[in-house]
Structures are given as structure tokens and as C-alpha cells.
Amino acid sequence: MTHTAEQKRETARKHYNASLELCPARQLLEAISSKWVTLVMLALEDGQQRHSELRKRIPGASQKMLTSTLRSLERDGLVDRHVTVSVPVRTDYELTRRGRSLLKIIFEMKEWAEENMDDVAASRLNHDRHKLDFS
């Protein structure tokens, strides 16, 4: 029995289980949930940027970490790299359509964190105080 491409994708989707250690979906989830991926994606929201511009927008990101993150995002099809032959060579990065679709989710997480940070901070303080009381 032959299946359409959509049927094959649906069958594959049913077999992915991010709870399983070797599941490709789990590996992707681990990759896209990194702090640096989140910060790079947010920085690229405004459009194409050079490596040096991204470093300025993401305090604490080393050149090595930023390069590694950009390569990973490019490999996953979330970022495009554009090289302009000039002296010096110019390299720009921008989100792909797939990257923009993930950016929507990242913005929701960012908004949630900003809206809930005060309550989370209070919970952490209460937890730590309670833990000290029993030490």
C-alpha cells in the first residue's frame, strides 16, 4: 500500500516521543531550548545582522558560543547565513521562515517569564527560607 507524503509525515509524527532519550524530537527540543538559542533568535527578530552586531546585542555571549549557536541554528534551518564577498568579507545572519515560526513561541515564553518573574522570585525565596528552617 502506498502512502501520500502527508500520510508518511503523520505516521512519523505519531512515532516521535520527546520523552525517549534517542528520539529526534527530543534532540531538537534540547537544541532549541538553549539559553543562547533563545537570545540569538530574539536578537535576530529585527532582521539581518552581522556577527559583531549580535555580540553587542547579547551581553555575555563569547565569540565561540555565538558562532557555535549560529552554526547550529543554520544546520537546523532556523537561520540563513549570507556571505558578501568584499574586503573584509561580510557575513550576515537572518531568521528563516521556520525560524520565525519558532520565534513566536520564544516570544510567548519571554512574555510569560516577564509576567511571572516576581511570583517566581517570591516562590524561590519562600522555598529557600523553608529549606533553611529544616537544616
Rank of each mutant, 00 (worst) to 15 (best):
P88S: 02
M41V: 07
R81W: 02
A5W: 04
Q63S: 14
L125K: 12
R9N: 03
T84P: 00
K104T: 00
V120E: 10
T2P: 14
D92H: 10
E111S: 14
E10Q: 11
T38Y: 11
R57H: 02
L20R: 14
S52I: 02
R100L: 13
E94C: 11
F134C: 04
L66E: 08
A43H: 01
N126H: 12
S34P: 01
A31I: 00
Q48D: 12
L102G: 07
R13P: 04
M41A: 08
H127L: 13
T84L: 13
D128F: 07
G47S: 06
T69I: 05
T69K: 01
H51S: 09
A61D: 05
V85P: 07
S123Y: 09
M41Y: 04
A43S: 06
L95V: 04
S52L: 05
E111P: 00
G60I: 00
R129C: 06
R50N: 04
K14A: 08
W112A: 15
W36D: 15
L28F: 11
S123Q: 13
E115Q: 11
R26N: 13
A113M: 12
E21G: 15
P24S: 04
T91I: 09
H15Q: 10
S33F: 10
F107A: 06
K35L: 09
T11A: 13
H127F: 15
A122N: 13
P59C: 03
A12T: 04
Q7N: 05
L28H: 12
A61M: 02
R57P: 03
A12D: 05
G77E: 02
K56Y: 06
E74V: 14
M65H: 15
E6K: 00
S86I: 02
M41T: 13
R75F: 07
S72V: 05
L29I: 03
V85T: 11
A18W: 06
Y93V: 03
I105R: 11
A5Q: 15
M109G: 14
N126D: 15
A113D: 14
E94I: 03
V37E: 09
H3M: 06
R124N: 15
R71A: 03
H82T: 09
L28G: 07
T67E: 13
A18M: 01
M117T: 03
L28P: 02
A113P: 02
S123N: 05
S33P: 01
D46V: 12
E111D: 14
D128A: 15
E21T: 13
H15P: 06
E10G: 02
G60F: 04
L20F: 12
I32P: 07
